[in-house]
Amino acid sequence: MNVLIVYAHPEPKSLNGSLKDFAVKHLEDAGHVVKVSDLYAMKWKAPLDASDSMDGQACERFNPALDSKLAFENGRQAKDLAEEQDKLQWADAVILQFPLWWFSMPAILKGWVERVYAYGFAYGVGEHSDTHWGDRYGEGTLAGKRAMLMVTTGGWESHYSARGINGPIDDILFPIQHGILYYPGFDVLPPFVIYRTDRVGEAGFTKACETLAERLDKLWTTEPIAFRPQNAGAYDIPALTLRADIAPGQTGFSMHSEQ
């Protein structure tokens, strides 16, 4: 299988760097083909702007969606983002690896998403009607592929528990897992998370690698998070609200997955 790791950490000797190196070797030893987009090493340009089109902005005012659409349709995208799209099309599975900084991904990785997820590639695709509101949330250009987050955080696991001060880790990662990965069609696997990174130590690293190896070995057999598909009947279209008879009285992120 083909695996793409999109990696966002500035220090090669960090815990993240060591985990990335371990993941690459483990996957390759198992016979998989691995590509790594090391965003800091690539000096990835994070801001989405008119330079993402070889022709510059399409009109007097830069329009992110329109300019992205025209550049994608006409083969006039900046070379770096077109190359990343090719990697996504090539991959059978994608791993986004990053430290949790201020409750989200590093800005360089968010910039990768904003630029690579062009209009017509990751969004703005499919029929929009009274019964089908675009190919997204379970459908889309990346459907049939698998994705997983590899996340490290300095906080304790209890800090990210159901009653933890930081909020449940599944809620914190929901915008990434549901909005960035599931939206264009990925089957999203439960995340691999390491807590208290400053206390891992040699023994902790060995244990983390053992757990990660098991997760990587099951990359194609692990049950994905059971997010509800948008166009399969669970949501009223075009309002895109969950039907009243599904998870009645429930609110919040959890209602968008089948328990």
Results as ranks from 00 to 15, higher is better:
118 A>N: 11
56 G>C: 08
71 A>I: 01
155 G>H: 06
234 A>K: 00
101 W>F: 04
130 D>F: 14
23 A>F: 07
123 Y>C: 06
150 M>F: 03
250 Q>F: 00
43 K>P: 05
58 A>F: 08
142 L>T: 07
4 L>M: 15
184 P>W: 01
166 N>S: 07
106 P>N: 01
179 G>S: 02
214 E>F: 00
82 A>K: 10
140 G>Y: 00
214 E>K: 09
246 I>C: 05
240 L>H: 02
122 A>H: 05
258 E>Y: 12
8 A>R: 08
19 L>R: 02
87 K>N: 14
58 A>I: 08
51 S>M: 03
230 Q>E: 03
66 L>M: 11
41 A>F: 08
97 Q>S: 13
256 H>A: 09
140 G>V: 10
94 V>K: 06
156 W>E: 14
137 Y>R: 02
56 G>L: 06
215 R>K: 14
70 L>Q: 13
47 P>A: 08
257 S>Q: 13
242 L>R: 06
133 W>N: 06
191 P>A: 13
242 L>D: 14
97 Q>K: 14
65 A>L: 04
32 H>C: 07
85 Q>K: 15
171 D>L: 07
112 W>Q: 13
134 G>C: 09
30 A>S: 13
81 L>Y: 04
126 G>N: 10
129 S>W: 15
74 N>H: 07
156 W>K: 10
228 R>E: 14
259 Q>D: 07
191 P>D: 09
16 N>I: 11
52 D>M: 03
42 M>G: 10
191 P>T: 11
202 E>R: 15
189 L>K: 02
212 L>Y: 02
19 L>P: 00
196 R>D: 10
214 E>Q: 08
94 V>Q: 04
14 S>E: 09
139 E>Y: 07
241 T>W: 03
225 I>A: 06
98 F>P: 05
119 Y>M: 12
237 I>S: 12
12 P>I: 06
95 I>M: 14
28 E>F: 01
227 F>N: 03
236 D>K: 15
169 I>D: 00
2 N>M: 04
28 E>N: 09
163 R>Y: 04
31 G>T: 10
161 S>N: 09
149 L>N: 06
141 T>P: 01
38 D>F: 14
182 Y>I: 10
96 L>T: 12
189 L>P: 00
136 R>S: 06
150 M>W: 04
165 I>V: 14
49 D>A: 07
176 I>V: 09
199 R>Y: 05
83 E>W: 01
